[in-house]
Computed example of a mutant assay.
Amino acid sequence: MHKYRQKTFIRSTLLLMFSFFFTVSILAGPAHGQLHPEFDEEQYQERYEKALVLEIKDKSVKEIEALQGNIVEQEVKVRMLDGADKGKILTAINTLSGSAGFDMHLSPGDKVVIYIAEFTPADGGEAVKTIYVSDRVRSPALLWIVGVFAGLLLLIGRWQGAKALFGLGITILGIYKVLLPGLIAGKSPLPLTVIVLIVVTLITMICIAGFSRKALAATLGTLGGLIVAGWLAYIFGDLAQLSGLATEEERMLVYVENLNLDMRGLLFSGILIGAVGAIMDVTMSVASAISEIKRANPEMNTAELVAAGMNVGRDIMGTMANTLILAYTGGAMPFMLLFMVYEMEPLRIVNWELIVTEIIRALVGSIALIISVPITAVIAGWLTATRKV
């Protein structure tokens, strides 16, 4: 009877947490604001469609003194592969300015994304259509790598891999259906992000470990790590006077019409999202280790289980902290090369907001990861010690 009550308590606690956070996240969610000025969709339409390049020829060369060079406009004949114009042969414009990273040097047989803007005058006159080559078609490569990832996860992980894919799907839905719409609607970024991440964590843990002490301990450990990460992000972001406008993308958001975002809050939210994956990894590893140790030695008490969990956690935290630092360093490689090439002064580097932001992002995540180890070890040790094997 005692064991049954414990199971009921654990399941009720997990279900209560899930229901609470899910309800609050839904209440905090959508209500999309209108970001663009109104226009008559019947008069102006724009769309992106895939096409196959058939023929290319230079149309004109324009001299641009400010760029000290020429801009070449190419006529590109394409066969549309989808959309309203599927099967039609159209002519698109491709512009070459001599700028690496912007120019697309096309060849017949290439697949491209075509931008089509069509305007129909209000008086019913002939529609005016402009067609440009927007980008190369890269989605097939993306689909292949996603397929390899999912296939290996299912092949090696089997049922656990399938549950991991389900948890990943929930994570994507939580971000794109709750978090982002909530931010657009003007909700406070930090509380909303914490709520969404806790819901995602809880569902993921239940998928992996079921309604168990292990799932509860890992969830509570992750919650503790997130609270620490949020607090540290806020404190040190304030001390470093971070504005949340260090990157070009962040500054672009400021000028979007009818979009009122808390950019500093958005920065702190990004720090939490970047850290939660590693925190979940550590907390589940510690909780699982304690569960298996208890199974192997049923006589161990709470203090011994906590100590064993801490030993496992110390081994994990060293590699995971390194993983976080290396992940952020990998993203900043171009900047690091620029610093060395131009021999920038250290004083300039360590006070540049973009660099300070990334350093704080990496260290806040690492500290939260470290703190989550003892939190999880204590909770898992206490919950597991009462289990009868």
Rank of each mutant, 00 (worst) to 15 (best):
I279A: 05
V373L: 09
I172F: 06
V378P: 01
I359N: 03
T120H: 07
G161Q: 06
E49S: 11
G174N: 02
N297M: 10
L190Y: 01
L67N: 11
A385H: 15
I273H: 09
A233C: 05
L259K: 10
P374H: 01
A100W: 01
E345G: 03
M317G: 08
G87V: 02
A51E: 06
T8A: 13
V341K: 13
A229M: 13
I367H: 11
A185F: 03
A215R: 06
V113W: 06
T302Q: 15
R361A: 01
R295F: 13
V112L: 00
V133T: 02
E299A: 14
V148A: 14
I360R: 08
T247N: 05
T193H: 05
E292L: 13
F21V: 07
E250A: 15
S19P: 03
N260C: 00
R295T: 09
S12D: 01
M317H: 03
E63T: 14
A287P: 11
A246Q: 04
I195M: 12
T302A: 14
T357L: 07
T201M: 08
A185P: 08
Y115C: 04
A51R: 05
I26R: 05
L220Y: 10
G221Q: 05
M284Q: 11
I114G: 04
P140S: 07
I10K: 11
I359R: 00
F21Q: 02
L153T: 15
E345R: 12
N297V: 13
G230T: 12
A117L: 04
M80F: 00
I10C: 08
E248R: 02
A307Q: 09
G237W: 11
A362W: 01
V137G: 06
G186I: 07
E299D: 13
Q74K: 13
G313S: 04
S139Y: 14
N258F: 06
R314E: 12
K177M: 09
A385G: 08
T319G: 02
Q68F: 00
V200C: 12
G318W: 01
A217C: 09
Y176P: 01
V364D: 08
H2R: 14
Q241C: 00
R314I: 12
G313R: 05
I195P: 03
D135R: 04
I279S: 10
R213A: 04
V364S: 06
K62V: 14
T13D: 05
V286K: 06
A240P: 00
L155T: 11
L173Y: 13
F236H: 03
M263D: 04
D40R: 11
P374V: 09
G101I: 08
A278V: 15
